Amino acid sequence: MVLRSRVSRDVPGGPAAGATVFMPEGRVGPVVALLRRLFLALGALTAAALIVYFQRDGYIDNNNDDGIGLIDAFYYATVSLSTTGYGDVVPVTESARLWTILVITPLRLLFLIVLVGTTVELLTERSRQAFRIRRWRSRVRNHVVVVGYGTKGQAAVTTLRGDGHDVEHIVVVDTDRGRLDAASALGLVTVRGDATQSSVLRTAGLPHATALVVATNRDDTAVMVTLTAREMAPKITITAAVREAENVHLLRQSGADSVVVSAETAGRLLGMATTTPAVVSVVEDLISPEAGMSIGERVVTEAEVGGSPRHLRDIVLGVVRDGHVHAIDAPEVDALERGDRLLCVRRAGPDEG
């Protein structure tokens, strides 16, 4: 179970209305943490009772002349550690009083710290998390915002992490609590809210982000998110996924830099798999960053300037110049220039060069 730190819109200094930020924390659940403190308190109580019982000759019970029994020892430990102190069972010998000073008193302090500390922690949790979120909002820069953490969103996050993005630089926005829990389990900062609202995107730090991934389940929602994001951050890179190819032009008109047709792409792979399954395996390998081969992008080196992309050692698939992608046999990129970027096949994994 994962502890999630929540600060809602009614907390001073918290996020904008309509959004809730969840900061990832430790993986110890609240029930486990509570049981640990309960066992610690019971342990202190039992230790104090056993000390009194083994030192029972040094105690007297003003209401009973039969001596101190085990129940009497637990009774004394209970009223002593809770600072109630009725005074009916008291230490009378120097040895018993010395044990009270050196052992019972520290156990009393430990007992009170466990009980009072739990209450104080609950009371201060909201303020502490509000401070953490304000600090995160002031520091988060150059991150990637992923809207929608369904199948497409999860795959996008996996790819980003495989390409070297730290979890601190990925923020997930969704309305589903279960999906946010799954993202929090990976250590991601999550924002619960409707991404079509500018306040929610602002809470996710979109004005300071470098890229936005729109992976919603509905095409109309993707269009609205893209419109809102482009108006808020004109220079941000927006990549969106749509289910139907007929909606691609709507995403591009809304401001998306790249549009991926999920249903059509999956259909093409299914069709290819029936006749050429090996081709599908290669394509899956290229788009999986964990191992095997992958498609990467790099800057043209000084030694490659003036040469043809078809004659390089790397397998070049395209050349990016002035924001446009050109095929390697296009006459515009027959001679590479400084500032060009190459789309090439490279080995994925930790040894990737």
Results as ranks from 00 to 15, higher is better:
P234K: 13
Q129M: 13
R179N: 08
G117Q: 06
G193Q: 00
A233S: 15
L201G: 03
Q154G: 07
G193P: 03
A204Q: 00
V214R: 05
T203E: 04
L115T: 13
A156C: 15
V116C: 10
V225P: 08
V172T: 00
T119N: 04
V200G: 02
E125D: 06
R202I: 13
A156E: 10
H169M: 11
T175G: 10
S184K: 07
H208C: 13
D166I: 12
T210D: 13
L201F: 00
V191R: 00
I133A: 05
R192M: 11
T226Q: 07
V214F: 03
L227E: 05
T226R: 03
L186K: 05
G193E: 01
R230V: 14
S199M: 06
S199Y: 10
R128L: 14
R230P: 09
D166R: 13
A195P: 06
V214C: 01
Q197I: 09
T151M: 07
P207K: 09
S138K: 15
L160Y: 14
D219A: 12
G162T: 07
A209N: 03
A211G: 05
V146K: 04
M232R: 09
V120K: 01
V167G: 01
G153P: 02
A233E: 11
E121C: 04
A209F: 01
R134Q: 15
R135L: 08
T119D: 04
M224L: 10
P207F: 11
T226V: 08
Q154P: 00
A155W: 12
N217V: 12
N142L: 08
G193N: 07
R141T: 09
S138H: 10
I113P: 06
S184T: 15
R126W: 07
G193C: 06
V157W: 10
V157Q: 06
G148H: 06
W136M: 04
V147E: 09
P207T: 12
F131M: 11
A229P: 03
R161V: 14
R179S: 06
T226F: 01
V144N: 01
G148I: 01
A182D: 15
R218K: 05
T175H: 09
T196A: 07
D219E: 08
T221D: 15
A215K: 08
S127R: 11
D163E: 12
